[in-house]
């Protein structure tokens, strides 16, 4: 997966360089230059307007813990020292989308401020990573895709469960819907593409896998991830102090439970 991403990144950069002069409608005013090399932490950080009121900061084009740590550090710093005019932040694997008020700031003004923040990333201390455990009942009605996933990888369902529960995952970020944690990295031997046709409804608490990611649906909703189990834990509750069960940077393990245990926890 990483090898293909790397190859892919290369091809994107080639396309980028060639595509610009070929496109007559391209306006040079909106073309952003690549940043100059600075400190090791800003090395590779790239700014890209996403809309007239948002700016993407990329830390490379690969999913790595190092890039994700920079995302978390920049997010942390912006939460500790908010910038006037910034309205929202969307962290992801190796990027941070910064939404801002265009009446108060411009892309270039914001980029200058953010570069100052990037220079200080080394010194940012991230909150201690919490260890979280997610009990999950695998297979059967709770994990309708488990057998197929196991068969695709030439293993038994029990082996697939064991493998999924054998790893400590990192919460790279919360996104998509409230409380949805993107967990990585799924063991290579379990990495499976999304369903060709997404389900109309994945029940709340469904444990899914997609590519080399895994995650839990906090709400009943349509989805293309392959469902291998379900947790009775509420991943997002607006009446709880920490609405989201998981926070960015948490360390997560899944614990296989029986359907009887599932029912007991669900009613607890």
């Amino acid at each position: 997966m990483f090898a293909t991403l790397r190859e892919f990144t290369r091809s994107v950069h080639q396309t980028r360089v060639e595509a610009v002069p070929r496109y007559p409608e391209w306006n040079p005013a909106v073309l952003y230059t690549f940043p100059k090399m600075r400190t090791p932490m800003t090395d590779g950080a790239r700014f890209q307007p996403a809309s007239d009121q948002s700016l993407l900061v990329y830390f490379g084009q690969q999913i790595t813990l190092d890039a994700n740590q920079r995302v978390r550090k920049l997010l942390r710093l912006l939460e500790l020292e908010p910038v006037a005019g910034i309205r929202n932040l969307h962290p992801a694997y190796c990027s941070l989308l910064v939404n801002f008020d265009a009446l108060k700031s411009s892309h270039s003004e914001l980029e200058t401020i953010l570069r100052g923040y990037l220079d200080r990333l080394e010194a940012v201390r991230l909150p201690e990573q919490q260890k979280r455990e997610i009990p999950a009942c695998y297979g059967g009605e709770f994990g309708p895709d488990l057998n197929e996933v196991a068969a695709l990888h030439g293993m038994t369902p029990a082996q697939a469960i064991e493998l999924h529960a054998s790893v400590t995952y990192v919460v790279y970020f919360l996104g998509f819907v409230p409380g949805f944690a993107y967990l990585g990295e799924l063991p290579e031997a379990l990495a499976t593409p999304r369903l060709a046709t997404p389900r109309r409804r994945a029940p709340s608490g469904s444990v899914g896998i997609a590519g080399n990611q895994t995650g839990v649906y906090p709400f009943a909703m349509p989805g293309g991830w392959r469902l291998i189990g379900r947790t009775p834990i509420a991943m997002f509750r607006p009446d709880r102090n920490n609405m989201s069960f998981l926070s960015i940077g948490d360390r997560v393990r899944f614990t296989p439970i029986s359907s009887a245990r599932f029912a007991a926890l669900e009613n607890a």
Binding site: L5, C94, N99, G175
Partner: peptide, 16 residues
Amino acid sequence: QSAGGGMITEGISLGA
């Protein structure tokens, strides 16, 4: 797309 697939999930701005 000329460069197909391989997009890494990232933040989405309103009106994208």
